[in-house]
Design a protein around this nucleic acid. Structure first.
Lengths: 129, 129, 129, 129
DNA sequence: GTGGTCTAGACCACG
DNA sequence: GTGGTCTAGACCACA
């Protein structure tokens, strides 16, 4: 499904969160699709189930998945409500990164091309529905 | 000068690094300008001097400032050499954020306007010299 | 494991860096081998854990080891990429030292024998795998 | 005569010591030749005379120059006696550097060529007598 | 006066 | 139990 970098400084559960978020965001995991159970994912990644549990809880807190006790964890469909706070954070991060890229000498045209790349990926995901 | 969130999960020294990097990147702090001394900044933020020291050391490692022992810490002018590794990381972060913004329903036009904003800020800083 | 000169002008953490670097470079410590934990090394050298920590952090910045928070510190395998800057510094140091050795009257043949010695050590370490 | 890097971490007096040592070692400054006076050198480098004084004292301690009070500072000719301790230190530094160069992937042939370079420089200095 | 180093001891996150 | 962070307070080198 995906790979973790066990040698990274980043905590494993955080890497998990990012990876799963990426799959959801890029529409690889569709709304209401079931995620692997904690045990299955833990054993397939050979990590501690507690770590997977923590990642799932984090994703639930962020509104990316929902948990049906006894059933499993499922992808939550995006609801444009209550995203404003998250979007504000993302905008700030975005500005920070763009500023740094410009400072380090990246050409604005390169930035545009990166955006086209992201757009294409996003559209591609949707067309797979 | 700026504010820290002492309740944040992010370590104080990292917040400091980010804040100062932002000031440098946006040309608020000009090349060869002196940063506040370790002790002054520490007392004005009511944190420990060692924490400021750690932030300054980190900024020095990243090439954003240089330290003259006994003199102070100063902004280092950008050298577009060997930034490729850092730029690659930034590109990945950038793609992640743009994907997430699109997923959460942000209009591409809004993203463009953010970029214009960053460009203006970057240019504005330079013209203040 | 090794000894420190607490009376030296060189900071303890730098001595530590040099000693450990030497062990890695001479293949006494193999790739992915775990280094002594911060606390163990600190107590065995009767120095402060923070000092060991600082040395480990420095070695990590230089690419000689990697740190897994909660797990320990491990030797990083060499990657001959991006070593050019460091090699340039080493070349300058090398020239300085050779010049001084020649000035002080050392025979060039003695220098050659030193190089053979270094080569043997380097090869010897590898064959111990 | 030479230039200092006032932005370097290395203390100015130490840079001075290294630069002057280099001139002596490469026979640019000949035995019994007079060095610039403290005041002259300080003002030509626009640094503090105390700093120059400290560098000269250090060079005297290392046996590279001698001071005639009221007359000035002069280059001391090499005497192969009592160099053994210094040579031992240099050998250790040399081994450390060569090991590191080999570890970082430098070809032994490159090292040989560096030695030839140093030998040529050393011979060149002498022929200027 | 500056930055740099070191110590002692506390608390937290991770797995 | 591991590394990571932070504090408090001391001492030193440099210019």
């Amino acid at each position: 499904m995906f790979e973790l970098d066990l040698r990274s400084r980043a905590p494993i559960y955080e890497q998990l969160v990012e990876k799963i978020k990426e799959l959801i965001v890029n529409n690889v995991l569709k709304p209401d699709e079931q995620l692997p159970t904690v045990r299955v994912l833990a054993s397939s990644l050979t990590i501690n189930p507690n770590t997977v549990q923590k990642a799932y809880r984090e994703l639930e807190n962020c509104g990316y998945i929902y948990s049906l006790p006894g059933k499993g964890n499922f992808v939550r469909a995006t609801v444009p409500e209550n995203n404003s706070a998250r979007l504000l954070n993302l905008e700030n991060e975005f500005l920070r990164i763009v500023s740094e890229m410009l400072y380090l000498g990246m050409a604005p045209s390169r930035i545009d091309s990166l955006i086209q790349q992201a757009l294409a990926k996003s559209e591609g995901g949707k067309s797979n529905d």
